[in-house]
Write a protein that binds this DNA or RNA. Structure first.
Ligand SMILES: [Mn+2]
Ligand SMILES: [Mn+2]
Ligand SMILES: [Zn+2]
Ligand SMILES: [Zn+2]
Lengths: 165, 165
DNA sequence: TTGCAATTGAGAATCATTTGCAATTAAAGG
DNA sequence: CCTTTAATTGCAAATGATTCTCAATTGCAA
């Protein structure tokens, strides 16, 4: 039994929930892949793997994995939620390229520290946070000399369609 | 003509877009209200005000207001986008209470500065950022001694229903 | 005033996510 | 191992926010 399985079954027991084969499959699916994912991707990956289970089951399992501290939701992208590991992965924040969709992860201890200070100042007890910086990645800046007036870099229509995050 | 109207019509002209009565109504609606809002709220506010226009028109206008720097999208909340002023309002980030939904705005220059540093480190050209810290506000901490085991403060079912942000 | 691309409203279409329901099953207790 | 029962599942229908289609209208540059 992996450390994941052990922790998950402990969580389920504490909540009087059942460790079903489906949940097992989903757990394995989540930890056999180390990138950001969304429900549809996970579903298709499991299917290709020959597993049979429905989207609804995955949707219903996601909150369990969040509550038990395995994954967390990251920035919504075009109305769709994505997730990433928490368990076994250090916390980090994201740079999001609005041109190509590339996601760069970073961690800045000083920023984290200052966030705590802000919370203290307001008597706020933080549970989690998300910091996403949207802009243009190195490669996209290099590829195209981006023109445009004071009003932005894309037309509205283009921005709509290409809104990567 | 207000400064808003002037700036907006300038933007529209530059983009060869039209200053329609509907867009005018929406612009006024946005600037007659100084809090976070979503499309539905804006729609109903305008309706109550006797204005006649369709949701679709608002949805279509939102990207214009974003591009012209009047508003920006803030954290998605339950799959629904919210917006807040940018023009005439200083940038800030948010503390979000996951118990009562309260939103506390804050600004920390040092954090902003460090974000720029991070971007430089990655050759990334930032356009905007969002920092949201989710947790429990002062009042909620006071009201309820929040119990719970190591796995979190709400049950899954409750969390689903009460997920304020 | 004209010409035409941009815009609008209404409703249909999308798309991610949630939910109702009947059948199934994990797992606690004997 | 058997019983009991609440939890779980799959499927399809329901939701809800947002986008799109299309015919009718209109701003505005010339
Ligand atoms: Mn990440
Ligand atoms: Mn705000
Ligand atoms: Zn890029
Ligand atoms: Zn609160």
């Amino acid at each position: 039994m992996t450390i994941y399985e052990e922790r998950f079954s402990g969580y389920l027991k504490e909540k009087k929930l059942k460790l079903t084969p489906e949940r097992h499959i989903i757990l394995d699916g989540i930890f056999s892949f180390h990138r950001h994912f969304d429900v549809e991707e996970l579903y298709e990956r499991l299917r290709k793997n020959g597993e049979k289970l429905s989207r609804a089951t995955i949707y219903r399992a996601i909150p369990l994995f969040i509550e038990s501290g395995f994954i967390k939701e990251i920035l919504h992208c075009r109305g769709k939620a994505s997730y990433e590991h928490v368990f076994g992965h250090e916390h980090h924040d994201h740079l999001l390229c609005i041109k190509c969709g590339r996601i760069i992860e970073f961690k800045d201890d000083k920023i984290e520290e200052l966030q705590d200070k802000v919370c203290k100042r307001y008597g706020f007890k933080p549970v989690e946070h998300r910091l996403g910086i949207r802009g243009y990645c190195k490669r996209c800046i290099a590829i195209a000399k981006i023109g445009g007036g004071i009003y932005g870099l894309n037309t509205i229509r283009n921005r709509r369609k290409s809104r990567n995050c």
